[in-house]
Computed example of a mutant assay.
Amino acid sequence: MAKESIKARERKREKLVARYAAKREALKKAEDWKGLDALPKNSSPVRLHNRCKLTGRPKGYMRRFGINRVTFREMASNGLIPGVTKSSW
């Protein structure tokens, strides 16, 4: 499990990206590169990293569910994810 400070940093970046999204888009359309430089670095969506919403694990992330593969497997086995069943053949 990731440290709480790492998860908090990522949440902070997500908020900044959401706050400055419209302003960033307007500056890009106007081609105001100096204005874009004046925005905070963490307001750029490129700086976001996909992390598991529950554990904060950065690897094995499944976009469709927002969690990592390990957590997904545990939750699917326990029947906590609707529509997902364990298959065998």
Rank of each mutant, 00 (worst) to 15 (best):
M1F: 14
E4L: 10
E4V: 11
S5M: 11
S5H: 15
I6R: 03
K7F: 03
K7Q: 03
A8H: 09
A8K: 14
R9D: 00
E10D: 12
R11Y: 15
R11E: 15
K12Q: 15
K12D: 14
K12L: 14
K12A: 15
R13T: 09
L16H: 04
V17L: 09
V17I: 06
V17N: 05
R19E: 14
Y20N: 01
Y20E: 06
A22M: 11
E25A: 15
E25Y: 12
E25P: 08
A26C: 11
A26W: 08
L27H: 01
K29W: 00
A30N: 07
A30I: 04
E31L: 13
E31M: 14
E31A: 13
D32P: 01
D32I: 00
W33E: 12
W33N: 13
K34C: 10
G35E: 02
D37L: 12
D37E: 14
D37H: 14
D37S: 06
A38I: 00
P40E: 04
P40T: 02
K41D: 14
N42C: 08
N42P: 03
S43N: 08
S43L: 10
S44W: 04
P45M: 08
V46A: 10
L48N: 03
R51N: 05
K53W: 02
K53L: 01
K53G: 02
T55L: 02
G56W: 09
G56Q: 09
G56F: 08
R57S: 06
R57Q: 11
R57F: 12
P58L: 04
K59R: 06
G60W: 07
G60T: 06
G60I: 00
Y61A: 00
Y61L: 00
M62F: 13
M62E: 09
R63N: 08
R64Q: 12
F65S: 00
F65M: 04
F65G: 01
F65H: 09
G66V: 07
G66H: 09
I67E: 04
N68D: 12
N68S: 05
N68M: 02
R69Y: 09
R69Q: 13
V70H: 15
T71R: 04
F72Q: 03
R73A: 01
R73G: 04
E74G: 03
E74I: 13
M75N: 01
A76T: 08
A76G: 12
A76S: 10
A76W: 01
S77P: 04
N78L: 14
G79V: 02
L80H: 13
L80F: 12
L80Y: 01
I81N: 01
G83N: 10
V84T: 03
V84P: 02
T85K: 08
S87K: 15
W89H: 08
W89K: 06
